[in-house]
Amino acid sequence: MKSTALFEFTDTIIPLMGNSGRSLCVSLETLPGDLCLIRGDNGAGKSTFLKWLYQWLQANSDLRASVRYLSQGADEDFIIPSQLLDVARLVSSQSGFENSSQKTAQFAQDDLLFPKKLWQTPWNKASLGERQRAMVAGALFGEPKLLILDEPTSAFDSSAEKIFWDRIQKLCETGTAVLAVYHGSSEALPPHKELLL
């Protein structure tokens, strides 16, 4: 029996950032459990597409509370003091999904091997890899129906990346769909589709 698509759109025009006048024309159907890697040259519009998709889903889909979006924002510093745990919790509580900091920390330690002692590291003093791992932990927490990830492992070391893809595979097996911009080799990755922009 064919699964019902989480969302689909056909020949949709997505304007790219800036004044270039360029746009994308995309058709996409995503089923529960799909892993779709988005690839393309620099400036092809991958990040713009993901951001557009998240906002489109917020406006047009019943999924809105079960979608997590992760940008490449780990390099941003905060003026207001924040710890890694603050940020992880905020990522996991997108679109109104409520959870506690402690549950996020426990999940990250058990499922992503991200030790609890790191959680109190000030965000502005953490390395890019630590920040990214905290954000990813927040995004993966609580079995969302759809994950939209923009280069989620760009600052990961190889062991952290392996743990990440193992976890993604488990999530896909339970029905979570994942769309991710990813530039790495696809040899060791779980079964996936590719969207070339």
């Binding site: 940008s71 940020v87 905020l90 509580s93 954000m135």
Partner: peptide, 16 residues
């Protein structure tokens, strides 16, 4: 409190 903090975060880190 939580929703406002989330909003700052969305702008700074999620860039939404």
């Amino acid at each position: 409190f939580d929703s406002h903090i989330r909003r700052f975060f969305n702008r700074r880190v999620l860039k939404i």
